[in-house]
Amino acid sequence: MVVPLHHIIAIASLLFSIGVLGVLFRRNAIIVFMSIEIMLNAVNLAFVAFSNYHGNVHGQVFVFFTMTLAAAEVAVGLAIIISLFRNLQTSDITEIHNLKN
């Protein structure tokens, strides 16, 4: 692999920032969720890059766990979105602030 390590990390950073952008800017809860997935994957990319660089598998194991976590999180998160949508007829997070009061 001839790509320098810091290029991969820079791409991961860029990806992460795009995720942040999405979380901050989008009002649709589903898109916000997807942005979070993008952020997770950015971190995964960094893990794999370091795993490759160091030549051991620990980074990959971490990615494995991240994926498990992401799966659990998505399942629960989407269930919450569905029940929110059912109750409030919206998935716009700027309109969901019942906890405020």
Partner: peptide, 21 residues
């Protein structure tokens, strides 16, 4: 991204990426 994983020799993770994600 899975493609990048393959290039980085993380074949297992790459496969997982396609399958799971």
């Amino acid at each position: 991204l899975a493609g990048i994983y393959f290039l980085l020799e993380a074949y297992f993770i790459g496969a997982l990426q396609v399958l799971v994600y």
